[in-house]
Structure formats: C-alpha cells, structure tokens
C-alpha cells in the first residue's frame, strides 16, 4: 500500500463516519453539523486526485456556505432538543427500498463506467488555469447557463422567502 492509498482510506473514513452519524443521530442539529467532517474528507479525496481548486471549492461552498445554510434552517425550526423530530411511527420500509434502489444504480454505474484510468507517479499539475481555459472555450455554453441557473435560484429564493 502506498502512502496515497493510506491517505485515501483515512479520508474515506473521515467521509463515512460523520455521514453515518448524520443519518442516525436523533438530534437534527448534530446530524447537520456532523457533515462538517464529511465535507472535509471529500475535499481530501479531491486533493488526492490532484484537483486542488475543486478541493478548496468544496471547503468554501460546502463548509462555508451550505453548512451555514443548513444550520440556519435547523435553527429556524422549533424545539430542536425536544422529541418532536423523533417520529414514533417510523416509516422504515419505503426509505430503505428507495435507498437500496439508489445504491443499486450507483453500483451498476460504477461497475459499467469505463474509467480510462492511467496511474502515474508524477505529481499532478495545477488545474486552475486549465479549468479557466476550458470554461472559456469548450464549456462556454454550460458556463453561461450556470449563470442563468444561479439567476433562477436567486429569484426563486427571494420569492419563496417573501411568501411567508
């Protein structure tokens, strides 16, 4: 096992353990907060793949943005420490089935995708400027469409918030 493998398994654990806590913790505040570890673990795996810019983006958007949004949303709800969020009549069968179906699809796609992987010992090159070049040439349309998507999200959020 190379050092990279060791780090991969460490990061994978850092992703998975908080994710399990997130699913099973009875308190939604803790469940949401446990994602903190997961997000960092994912950033670590991105780094191992040589995607430095994406790794920092992961931390900026997920830890600095989405996690705060989740916490705000959780704190907006009443009585977090009470037992209200523990539904006594737990609906277990349907979510389990849905989860298993999703897992099945994921496994199938992972097995059938041609990954075209070639492992090299060379250190990965910086990605940021190449990303920029691609966004300005090959992926110009998705880039501009992303702006429209953001516009839609912005207006949608404002209207949703105002309706209350």
């Amino acid at each position: 096992m190379t050092a990279q493998d060791v780090f991969f398994y460490i990061f994978a654990l850092i992703v998975l353990l908080p994710a399990i806590v997130c699913v099973f913790h009875p308190n939604i505040l803790y469940a949401g907060l446990s994602l903190f570890g997961s997000f960092f673990g994912v950033a670590g795996i991105y780094l191992l793949l040589g995607a430095d810019f994406i790794a920092a983006t992961q931390v900026l958007i997920y830890v600095g943005g989405i996690l705060i949004l989740i916490l705000f949303a959780v704190m907006l709800s009443k009585d977090i420490y009470g037992s209200k969020f523990q539904d006594e009549k737990k609906k277990k069968i349907l979510p389990t089935l849905l989860g298993l179906t999703l897992l099945g699809f994921l496994v199938k796609f992972i097995l059938t995708t041609p990954w075209n992987m070639t492992l090299t010992d060379e250190a990965p090159l910086p990605t940021t400027s190449r990303l920029g070049d691609l966004l300005l040439t090959d992926y110009l349309l998705p880039f501009e469409l992303a702006s429209i998507l953001l516009l839609a999200a912005l207006i949608g959020a404002i209207i949703l918030a105002r309706s209350k």
Binding site: G64, G65, L69, F72, L76, A157, I158, A161
Partner: peptide, 15 residues
C-alpha cells in the same frame, strides 16, 4: 427568516 435569505444570497454569489 431574513438570516436564511441572506445565507442563500451569499451562497449564490459565492458559487
């Protein structure tokens, strides 16, 4: 609720 709206606005500009 305003705090939540501010957070969404931030997230969009951040992206």
């Amino acid at each position: 609720l305003r705090f939540y709206v501010i957070a969404i606005l931030f997230l969009i500009f951040d992206v």
